[in-house]
Design a binder for these strands. Structure first.
Lengths: 138, 138
DNA sequence: GCTGGCGTTGACGTCCGGGGGAAGGTTTAC
DNA sequence: GTAAACCTTCCCCCGGACGTCAACGCCAGC
């Protein structure tokens, strides 16, 4: 299989495949004419890469998974190195989520304070009309 | 006050101040010699910008707050436009947090599955030795 | 009067990842 | 025979918030 077919079957582009090869992530054998030659195993590797990317992994983070598959393991995450990447990613996500939650709380606090300040100001400038005054005023 | 003093008092750099001016965020009056001239009000505006940046706001998002202060309001968030930015930011943060949480759950699921697969494999390859076999084998 | 430190503008560099796109040349496929 | 697919090499781009010169002007102190 050549690069165009592989790209199409994996739903990516030839440009990306050349880039992955450049990274050493998905090296290709070469046919006699210099064309890149891929097989079904490469498609499997490529699908692993794409799946992990959908999970939010960077390309470098997919490397242990790809190498694990290439080493003959049944799944990309059958190797300790892959599990470590999972753990690191989980820690990274937790950290990121926590920081965003803190930021959210700070902003929410500011927002609520500002809204109260606005309402207080409105109330002092134009005192609330109770039911009785309301009917008499209008 | 000139640019160096303002930068130092606000804990930022002259480069940043020129950049803010370039964005029209913090325009400066000019002294006779062409130097930028700032006053205490500008320091207040700048502190508002820095505070919001610490909250995770982009520079453009600080603009309504700065203009609100410049319009004479007591706080940067005394204006409706600022409150809208707060609301947009909260929605943006919520969305971001939610997407990260989903990603985290997907990764956690994969991780747990992989760990179970590993343990199952270890168990089948090397059956667990109970207390009795342990003493007889070694 | 000169050195040093501040100021000015403008333009380009950086960081980050993940490619995009074009030029210019082979090889294959119909 | 020609169009499509492939090859390599090269630079470009995205965004955000500045950093980093370069080359000059202004001013205080000694």
């Amino acid at each position: 299989m050549r690069i165009g077919e592989l790209a199409e079957r994996a739903g990516t582009t030839t440009r990306a495949l050349r880039y992955y090869e450049q990274l050493g992530l998905l090296p290709a054998r070469r046919a006699g004419n210099g064309y890149r030659a891929y097989d079904e195993g490469d498609l499997r590797l490529l699908r692993e890469i794409r799946t992990l990317q959908d999970f939010g992994f960077g390309l470098e983070e997919t490397r242990p998974f790809v190498e694990c598959l290439r080493a003959g393991h049944p799944e990309g995450d059958s190797c300790p190195a892959s599990l470590e990447v999972y753990e690191r990613k989980l820690a990274e996500l937790d950290d990121c989520i926590e920081r965003l939650r803190e930021a959210r709380e700070r902003v929410a606090g500011q927002f609520e304070r500002a809204v109260r300040a606005r309402d207080d100001l409105a109330a002092s400038e134009q005192p609330p009309r109770c039911e009785l005054t309301k009917t008499t005023e209008e």
